[in-house]
Design a protein around this nucleic acid. Structure first.
Length: 794
RNA sequence: GCCGGGGUGGCGAAACUGGUCAGACGCGCCCGACUUAAAAUCGGGUGACCCUCGGGUCAUGCGGGUUCGAGUCCCGCUCCCGGCACCA
């Protein structure tokens, strides 16, 4: 028997597969069912870690399994090479982001190839290449023309001393982290995707998707639908109406005051006319400088009375208008009717400022002190009160979503430039399609983030002629969020080299939706929402013929070390390189999937890897023994052949329906154990060995291929997936369990063909059973065919 | 607070539709074989307690229930993990 030289064998088969183009997919073969398997593309910010090993091994196992089941499988890879992780790596390590990213891509690609992951390398894409991001810009223009991208002022934290935008983390106690100056709020014009337009469809679409309930729940929470009503309150002094959003119109009679957010447009008018206008303005400034978390963490509610009153539309009572930062401008209407008796936050505020608290619902959930609505159950009252107000034009039923529009412009360098030119005469002008791409200049000296877009300092980039009037104009210096890149990359994989258009629709429509998407749970509420939004928008624009990107989503757990997720920023990374050097790809792949359920978080340990090493060595030894000595005759039906067929059924089900990757490995180990006990002389030994090798191939493709040849075959990667022989799954005898009062008292083999009466007779005949039946009356006998007989006595 | 997922040996876990003494498979540990020795490999053992060595009793977070039979279904509790959250 030849030695098991891992490195030589693995390198050999990787060469063979490369030469054979085993992972490449050309024009689709319409006679085969298709399967599109995509594992989330990585940030090339460093090297691979065990989390990557998990994600891509899951994808590879499914790919190899589905191919052998006769499907046409597309399994591509690319790099999410724009954005902060790459840029920060460049800043940390020195050098240009592009150089760092391209070096990392080179390194990671080498590791990926060593792992034996069967990607279609001919379709490799990277977000930072102009051939990719030109289509980000195309996408931008498409959505911009459709009104799905817009620009609006959005409040940011601004340091007046340093003249920069501050991230929330850079604000401490309302002061700039660097210079200590008091932080101000400033409206910064930013670009948004109008994703709220799809809020309801995003919610409804979840029902159709094969995603874990946990993931759907996270998206539902994030979208945050609330049914309620918009109610108009009159402000007599201003001769104006102000709308509030409430989910509890039934409590309207208990509304004792009125609160607007500090950012509410009404506040400016109020502070101009109010005697304590200065106090209001000071409060608004302080609130604006506070971070969201600071607002929340505040021990006591704060606010200022404006001196104005709003009229409750049902009671005609005049209730005081306050400005308070516990009301948020970007939810509902930015104004609320406060019902301190039935809302914890309103009560807290009322207690702090000594405002009246009027209960309007009793313990039975019925309305009290609510005029003609008194006595109604509160659910009915919601409808009744809104209906009454609607007749008078003072309210309407509405739905609010927590989901916000997606602000995607970044004051950073390493991203796709936004294809917009600002002209003094023409205003905001989109760059014409024929002028794309707007190339990101690579000769920028200083690209570190300072709160202003670094590109603004690049003269030759910034100064352009207006595409409309030809006058001197300025480019948009901000770049796109990297989530734009990742919102459509799975479309580009289907037509990666197309220079004329982002994809041919027939190709994108053929492969999509992605049949199996694989990735971490951390992308659930950002990337997985953005991609769904972009796909819906592209469908509305007629560029694709489907509305959901990911039909099924396999959520892999995190690989932890010392209790926290492995990541470069935490410095607790263990990469596959040392495992590859020591054990090779097959063992590394088996190990990561045998650690536990791939959907659960797992603690990295390198102890278990020894178990998989032993397994591959035993497989090598036993299969070689069988290959050398066992008969090639058609195997008989015996215990071992039955075990082999059961294992085929189990592994097929685990890889197909259940996606339970660790139990499939266990099943093959069981088969090997049984083969080992039976020995090479068993007449079914060769069949059992072939089955074990064939079933483990998706996990350990290199050793499987080598052993397949030893067994006298070739090209296992193309061999049809084995099919279990149904008759051998059911045995002609079974172990009958005999219970007395539900406790097992005996068990023995019986013929499977026995009738219920015969089973009872055999059970009764058992001596062990008799000792427990002794003297008692059998009141009932339960027979479960092919399983057990249970005597109920007493 | 609202929503979701969980709690099984020393450890990772399995038990898929209520039915084979619950714990497959792997790790770890113990014993044995081989060896001058070790590694590797091979064989055996490994939930707890009791024990006359045949077995007995208890055991899937806690307490109840349904059932001939419950890790699995129902009710209540408890603890852990995750999501959302001054969202009106």
């Amino acid at each position: 028997m030849a030695d098991y030289d891992v490195h030589e064998i693995e390198a050999k088969w990787q060469r063979v597969w490369d030469d054979a183009g085993a992972a490449l997919v050309g024009e689709p073969d319409p006679t085969k069912p298709k399967s599109y398997v995509v594992a989330m593309w990585p940030y090339p910010s460093g090297t691979l870690h065990m989390g990557h090993v998990l994600v891509y091994t899951v994808g590879d196992v499914l790919t190899r399994f589905r191919k052998r089941q006769g499907m046409e499988v597309l399994h591509p890879i690319g790099f999410d090479s724009f954005g902060l992780p790459a840029e920060n790596a460049a800043i940390r390590e020195g050098g240009h982001p592009r150089d760092i990213v391209e070096r990392n891509i080179e390194t990671i690609t080498q590791s990926m190839r060593r792992m034996g992951w069967a990607f279609d390398w001919s379709r490799l894409i990277s977000a930072h290449q102009p051939t990719y991001y030109v289509w980000d810009q195309w996408l931008f223009l498409q959505l911009y023309e459709a009104g799905l991208i817009y620009r609006k002022g959005s409040p940011v934290k601004w340091c007046p001393q340093d003249q920069v935008v501050l991230a929330n983390e850079q604000v401490h106690d309302g002061r700039c982290e660097y210079c200590g100056a008091e932080v101000e709020a400033k409206n910064l014009e930013q670009w948004f995707v109008r994703q709220t337009a799809y809020a309801q469809e995003l919610l409804d679409g979840l029902d159709e998707l094969d995603w874990a309930e946990k993931i759907k729940t996270m998206q539902r929470n994030w979208i945050g639908r609330s049914e309620g009503a918009e109610i108009q309150f009159r402000i007599d002094e201003l001769e104006d109406d102000v709308a509030v959003f409430t989910t509890r119109p039934d409590t309207l009679y208990g509304a004792t005051f009125f609160v607007v957010a500090p950012e509410h447009p009404l506040v400016e008018t109020l502070s101009e006319r109010s005697p304590n206008g200065e106090e209001i303005r000071a409060y608004v400034r302080r609130a604006a400088a506070k971070r969201g978390e600071e607002r929340m963490a505040a021990e006591e509610k704060t606010g200022v009375f404006t001196g104005f009153f709003a009229t409750n539309p049902v009671t005609e009572a005049r209730i005081p208008i306050w400005v308070a930062d516990y009301v948020l401008m970007d939810y509902g209407t930015g104004a609320i009717m406060a019902v301190p008796a039935h809302d914890d936050r309103d009560r807290e505020f009322a207690e702090t400022f000594d405002l009246p608290i009027v209960p309007v619902i009793d313990e039975d959930g019925k309305l009290i002190d609510s005029a003609q609505f008194t006595g109604l159950p509160f659910e009915d009252a919601k409808k009744a009160i809104v209906a009454w107000l609607a007749e008078r034009g003072r309210a309407k039923e509405t739905i609010s979503y927590r989901l916000r529009d997606w602000g995607f412009s970044r004051q950073r360098y390493w991203g796709s430039p936004i294809p917009i030119v600002y002209c003094d005469t023409c205003g905001t002008v989109p760059v014409p399609y024929e002028d794309l791409p707007v190339l990101l200049p690579l000769d920028l000296e200083d690209f570190r983030p300072r709160g202003v877009a670094p590109l603004a300092a690049h003269e030759s980039f910034m100064n352009v002629d207006c595409p409309q009037c030809g006058a001197r104009a300025k480019r948009e210096p901000e770049t796109m969020d990297t989530f734009i890149d990742s919102s459509w990359y799975f479309l580009r994989y289907t037509d990666p080299k197309n220079a004329d258009m982002p994809w041919r629709q027939e190709l994108a429509d053929y492969w999509n939706p992605v049949d199996q998407y694989i990735g971490g749970i951390d992308h659930t509420t950002m990337h997985m929402i953005y991609a769904r939004v972009v796909i819906k928008a592209l469908a509305d624009l007629g560029h694709i013929g489907f509305r959901e990107p990911f039909r099924a989503f396999f959520t892999n757990g995190w690989v932890n070390l010392g209790g926290t997720k492995m990541s470069k920023s935490k410095g607790n990374v263990i990469g596959p390189e040392q495992l590859l050097d020591e054990y090779g790809a097959d063992v590394s792949r088996l190990n990561i999937l045998h650690l536990g359920p791939a959907t659960e978080d797992m603690e990295w340990t390198d102890e278990g890897v020894e178990g998989m090493l032993r397994f591959t060595r035993r497989l090598w030894r036993i299969v070689n023994e069988v290959a050398a000595s066992s008969s090639r005759d058609t195997p008989p039906v015996n215990e071992l052949s039955r075990k082999a067929h059961q294992t085929i059924a189990k592994v097929t089900d685990d890889l197909g329906r259940r996606q339970s990757f660790h139990t499939a490995i266990s099943a093959v180990i069981e088969l090997l154990n049984e083969l080992s006990r039976a020995g090479a002389s068993d007449p079914a030994a060769r069949f059992a060995a072939e089955t074990a090798v064939s079933l483990i191939q998706p996990y350990a493709p290199h050793i499987a291929e080598e052993l397949w040849v030893a067994l006298g075959h070739e090209k296992l990667w193309e061999a049809p997936w084995p099919v279990a022989d149904e008759p051998q799954l059911t045995r002609d005898t079974f172990e009958l369990v005999v219970q007395v009062n539900g406790k097992v008292r005996d068990r023995f083999e019986v013929d499977a063909g026995l009738s219920e009466e015969e089973l009872v007779a055999r059970a009764t005949a058992s001596e062990k059973v008799q000792t427990h039946l002794d003297g008692a009356t059998v009141r009932r006998t339960i027979v479960v065919p092919r399983k057990l007989v249970n005597f109920v006595v007493g």
